[in-house]
Design a protein around this nucleic acid. Structure first.
Lengths: 357, 357
DNA sequence: TTCAAATCCGTGTTCGCACACAGAAAAATT
DNA sequence: AATTTTTCTGTGTGCGAACACGGATTTGAA
């Protein structure tokens, strides 16, 4: 159990095994040209000690260079994707001296053609690895099949396509996070009176994440026999017309006077909060996703009761780090990695945001 | 704003400034013996580019060795302190190749004499830095004053003594975590009927952390005008006699039939959960601190409603890392660092525990 | 037996940095 | 002007690992 921690070098192994450094190196890297005798001697020593190569010396000496390309949506500085961007930057800093170069490519998340175009550009440059936000399922499948052909490893970020052969996925279990959202919103034991729920969603195809959160939310309601007691009101927000959204809400509240709770399954809870503030509906419990600046502002103000967060920077960072582990350090990494479902409220948001680890 | 990320070496700076590598090195490390002309030339180049030394090459070349000593309570593998231990081990692994050696020293947290004895032992070995869990205030003050004398930097872990001159502190804002505990336990809008609260505490001096959590808890009650509506029942648990504890509880429940919630401010919520299970009091909302295995088990079973966690491994890890930054890499670190107040329930505990980043 | 091919393995160089040391240049002293 | 002293600076070595190179040994075929 007790592993002694001391620096063992190739030179030490060589002495212990009675061979030269070069031979130890050949054994370690399975480069062949080693006699059975030497091989056995070295392996014996390796079994006894726990050799941990000095990764710093290794990448210093290594002449190999790696180019990793990230493919994800173009965004504004306050968007969710900015956090992903930040995580990639963190990784870029850290692995720069390990001869890793990180390149970012963006596509328009409302236009599949831009995804295709950009992914083709990427293919032409023959990167050593690719990180993909698979917003467009079919287009992503096309892309990854070409990557497989070219033997370029890739990882998913944000969501994944299970049947493809990716290296890692870091993301939240959306279903479960929807379940938790429902619990937080509805678990006050006093559900004897009707509670109404608003759901806002972008028109057209909802993203996988959003759909799964919704399913989890409904599951909680069913699990707790709340389907009868609750009335769910679906409101569709327009992406570009907040005046219209406000009017829709005004109408909803005119016809339904006992609305006590509201939720959005995308990251735009602040829009709902904004309108509720305008309408002076301060007693509506609101829950949303992701720590956009505007969401956080409304959380601190008390207009949003809970935000569910998922450490997007960590997701991006870990994705890059694991690719380095796999490709450069030859360490095994686990494929599917769910990140914590963090529950934030105005009382703990500050400590959470400030802690950048 | 846009900092170009490319590898700039001392050699490059030397060429740009028209001097030799040695001179650049002398400027960078302020070792003197540089003519005004050369100094200016090098500084000019340094201002223009953003030189980031290759830390890996640096510690490879460096012959300096560092010995960091950790001083914290001896513990069982299931204790809270084990997580701190784990965090120190993680750091030990990571910084081993930066010529950092980490030594752990334990004291008996119920016996100040062992703290004094061990701290004296540490002083004799003249370490390069010390990490202290300041369980005993006066004894810690004595220790740190000697450290200051010997110019040995030190950091606090778990709690801190503000007026001393420490490098970092990583820990939770206990007051706020108590406040949140109260909110989670009591915020169900339906507080019209009386809710009773049990608090268990070890006899004798409660730790600072525990006291602050308690204060935060009371603050929430006052802030929300619940003082009148609630009755707080204090129960003192014995550390070594669970049979007695059970009997005390049995009596309490006999006299107070409407107990709806319970809390412990230390990390031993599982003891309370265990007894509540025995007494078949399954409708009591229980909240506790820290992810001990046993706590997590009861959380998953549903006997504990919430656990508040504080990433102790991260605390220990960051403490070591920051000391390296300060001492070895000459980077500035921030002194007081509050970690997130994580809210765990049976629905998100799995993703949290499995995520080891 | 001879010789080429296959197999085996030690040496030397490289990476970016720190630091020692020698020795050049400048300044101060005869 | 010749010297000593002081100030300054370039070169060289080593850190640990990777890998190319080529010399040494073994094997197999002729």
């Amino acid at each position: 159990m007790k592993e002694i921690k001391s620096k063992i070098r190739i030179k030490d192994i060589a002495v212990l095994a009675g061979v030269s450094e070069g031979t130890v190196d050949r054994v370690l890297h399975q480069r062949g040209d080693v006699s059975a005798k030497s091989l056995e001697a070295v392996n014996k020593v390796l079994e006894e000690i726990n050799y941990m190569p000095n990764l710093m010396a290794r990448s210093l000496a290594s002449k190999k260079h790696y180019r990793f390309v990230c493919l994800f949506p173009a965004h504004q500085p306050t968007d969710y994707w900015q956090s992903i961007n930040d995580g990639f930057n963190m990784a870029a800093d850290e692995f720069l001296h390990h001869n890793v170069q990180i390149e970012k490519k963006y596509f328009n998340q409302f236009d599949a053609q831009t995804f295709i175009a950009t992914s083709n550009e990427i293919l032409e440059t023959k990167p050593d690895a690719v990180f993909i936000a698979p917003i467009f399922r079919n287009e992503t499948l096309q892309f990854t099949s070409k990557l497989v052909e070219l033997q370029i490893p890739f990882s998913y970020i944000d969501s994944m396509i299970e049947e493809t052969d990716f290296v890692t996925y870091y993301g939240q279990h959306s279903f479960q996070s929807g379940y938790i959202a429902a619990k937080l919103l509805l678990h006050s034991g006093c559900a004897n009176n009707k509670i109404l729920i608003i759901r806002t969603q972008r028109k057209g195809a909802m993203s996988n994440q959003t759909l799964n959160r919704n399913s989890g939310f409904m599951q909680y309601i069913n699990d707790n026999g709340l389907a009868e007691k609750l009335e769910l009101i679906n409101v569709e927000f327009k992406d570009d017309d907040e005046m219209a959204n406000l009017e829709v809400l005004r109408e909803v509240f005119a016809t339904h006077t006992t609305i006590k709770a509201a939720i959005t399954f995308n990251s735009k809870a602040y829009r709902l909060a904004m309108h509720l503030e305008t309408l002076k509906k301060l007693d509506v419990q609101l829950i949303g996703y992701d720590l956009l600046e505007q969401n956080v502002d409304y959380l601190k103000k008390g207009m949003i009761a809970y935000l569910i967060a998922q450490r997007p920077e960590k997701q991006a960072y870990c994705t890059v780090r694991d690719m380095c582990k796999e490709l450069i350090f030859k360490q095994k990494v686990s494929t599917i990695n769910y990140v914590p479902i963090d529950v934030l409220m105005k009382e703990n948001i500050d400590y959470y945001s400030r802690f950048k680890e």
